[in-house]
Amino acid sequence: MARILKLRDALKEAMIEEMRRDASVFLMGEEVAQYDGAYKVSKGMLEEFGPMRVIDTPIAELGFAGIGVGAAMNGLRPIVEFMTWNFAVLAFDQIVNNAAKTLSQSAGQFNCPIVFRGPSGSAGQLAQQHSQTFESWLGNCPGLKVVSIVDPADAKGLLKSAIRDNDPVCFMESEIAYAWEGEVPDGEYTTPIGVAAVRREGTDVTIVSYNKMMRVALQAADDLAKEGISAEVIDLRTIRPLDYHTLVKSVKKTNRMVVVDESWPMFGVSSEIAYEIQKYAFDYLDAPVLRVNSADTSLGYSSVYVNEYLPNPEKVVKAVKSVMYVKA
């Protein structure tokens, strides 16, 4: 049996189940307790677990991220929620300089089993400081694992894996997708970190995406199907480590690839995928790998800027037709 759950509720189930299972797991962040979470992901958790395990912090991202790192080094398993990953920039010192490096610095004596989670990416007209993606930033850093999800079943299974993981995991969600629904299996399950999922099988082109851009990719695949183009669509789910095996396998079948990535184009997820594909599937490619990213700019507030900035199905269809050498 499966149930239809919103993404936010699937995430909550993962946290609740892991907190029931392991007393060392706790949740900490801004407005996570009495306010039920800024986006209601932790609704009701204070009531079940009490203020020692569901903890409201002051607005002090660097401080509470560091407290999380210390607690993780000393045997606990913190889940640190950022109201948005945009605010986690203040905490990057603790994430990048400490969580990611503790194991290396201590030559394996201290690990840092911590989950940093929150929404990443644009969420409407929120302007420059509240619209950024962080998969590429953190995916660049050795020592971290990076997960970015949109499907509720994946979200639950991957968050449970992240909480149980003995390394630090940065877990990227989406304000917009919190209300999106999907089937979630009943009963206990986890989803492995580091494995991509083929969401739609196809033969002509591989479209790779993750997080809420999956909707754009799938919509483009629908539109292409009407024109007789069969697109395979892959949800990365994990950014680091990158499951390039699944990508290479698909490209060996389709011989063409388009990456749909809300990150900025330079030095990011899409660049890395293009590198891996040219390295491992060079002889199978019938066209260069193309990508559809957000614009190489800061995002302004007006709807005009948002529409111009973000990937959309039209841009993806155009890229697919380009790699297929079909006239648009």
Partner: peptide, 25 residues
């Protein structure tokens, strides 16, 4: 600011108003 900032980011060099910051503190 030409529709670039919205509610959180007004600026005015003329009036020496330096914003409008969206990151707490």
């Amino acid at each position: 600011v030409k529709g670039k900032g919205g509610s959180m980011h007004f600026f005015s060099a003329e009036h020496r108003f330096f914003g409008g910051n969206g990151i707490v503190g």
